[in-house]
Amino acid sequence: MSPPGWHPDPGHSGIGPAQERWWDGTRWTEHLRVPPAAIRRRRTRVAVGVTVGVVVLAAIGGGVFLLQEDGDDRPGTAATAPRPAPSGSPGPGAPDGNGGDSGGNGSGGQGPDGQIPPTEKGYATDLASGISLPVPKGWTGRSGTVGAGLTTGEYACPGNSGEKCVRGGVFSAPAVALKLDATTAEAAAKKDIAVNAEESYGEKIYGGIASHEQLKSGPVTVAGQKGYAVRWKVVTEKGDDGYVESLAFPSPASEDLLVVVRSGFDVNAGAPKLSVLDDITKGIKAAAGGAGTGRTA
């Protein structure tokens, strides 16, 4: 039997970059990562989403799920839904294929160093950032060693019907994982908003952004920390317009670690109201057990 460690993902379909899955010695867990060697060789790009144990991740509003790679310099724009854990028989005690989502509160298996993302009922936990995001009723939450995510309302992307978008998405990650060169919450939020908007509603997903309007930019208290939020309304070339927000604040577990929460809500009768986003922000709390290491590998 193989010892615990990172091994080629037995559920890899052959589409997209090869990944590694964490084997805990008895079963395959939900932890996935892009091999470090591959990250060093090529630029990374993000497709939509957040997955347990991803080395570097970005959260794209409107639905982001899995860090991928590409050889070019363009940011990723394909809104791919999260691939579930292998549903076949890749190994003893393999996950049942539900992707780690359970009762609206995703959880990951044991990962490197024996760490397990805390599973609190009604919350999705970002272990590296030391925070937990409240999961609204009807939403899907996913916890991770690096990053956490909330999504609702999956549908075919207007710019590419072969890809999946969501009506609402909220994702967290340490600022260092997003390569943000900022030392304050205000600077981080202001730098991140344009990237968030482009990755959420730009290029092939929605045909690009025609214009944007800033709805707010100011301080906000999150999990007892003094943070900063910037919110835009973007007009797209295809499909629905959208609201995007970049929120930054010090981790409640470590004031030296900045956390970024990216959000994206469609402007659509079937999309969540902006009041839901405000409720999520108010409900963000320190994760049980602390953490907040900010590690991305």
Rank of each mutant, 00 (worst) to 15 (best):
A148Q: 08
E203D: 15
S143H: 09
A286Y: 01
E20W: 04
V55D: 11
K190P: 01
G104M: 07
A288P: 05
S217W: 03
K282C: 04
V235T: 15
I284R: 01
A148L: 03
A197V: 03
A185Q: 12
K282A: 12
I116G: 05
R40S: 13
A291D: 11
I60D: 08
R27I: 04
A173K: 00
W139D: 11
N105P: 03
R167Y: 08
Q225H: 01
E30N: 09
A128G: 06
P17Q: 14
V54F: 00
S263K: 04
A287T: 02
P92V: 07
I284Q: 01
A78L: 12
A223W: 07
G294M: 01
L133E: 08
P174S: 10
P134G: 13
G11M: 03
K282S: 11
V166Q: 15
G149E: 11
A194Y: 13
L274M: 09
G149A: 14
N105T: 15
Y206D: 11
N105Q: 14
K216M: 11
D256F: 00
R33A: 00
P4N: 05
P17G: 15
N160E: 10
T44R: 14
G97I: 02
G242N: 01
V146K: 00
D278L: 05
L247T: 07
D126Y: 01
V146L: 12
D96S: 12
V55W: 06
I193P: 05
R231N: 07
T293L: 07
E186M: 12
V176K: 09
E198M: 08
P174Q: 07
A18Y: 04
D73V: 06
P84G: 10
A187N: 10
G114R: 09
K190R: 14
Y206V: 08
G108W: 02
S217Q: 10
R27C: 11
G111D: 01
G97F: 03
G76E: 06
A94E: 06
D279M: 05
L178V: 02
S217D: 13
F265L: 15
Y228D: 04
V235N: 15
S251P: 05
L277W: 12
V261W: 02
K179A: 14
A297W: 07
E163Q: 08
S161V: 14
P252N: 13
I209R: 04
A182T: 07
T221D: 08
V222T: 07
I15W: 10
P136K: 12
L215T: 04
A148D: 04
A271S: 09
A253C: 09
G144V: 00
P112W: 05
T151M: 06
G99Q: 06
R295F: 07
G5A: 06
T293Y: 01
A229C: 02
A297N: 14
A185V: 13
S102A: 13
P4I: 03
S107A: 10
D9F: 02
R45T: 08
G108P: 02
R45L: 09
G25F: 04
A223I: 05
V48G: 11
A229S: 10
A269S: 15
D278F: 02
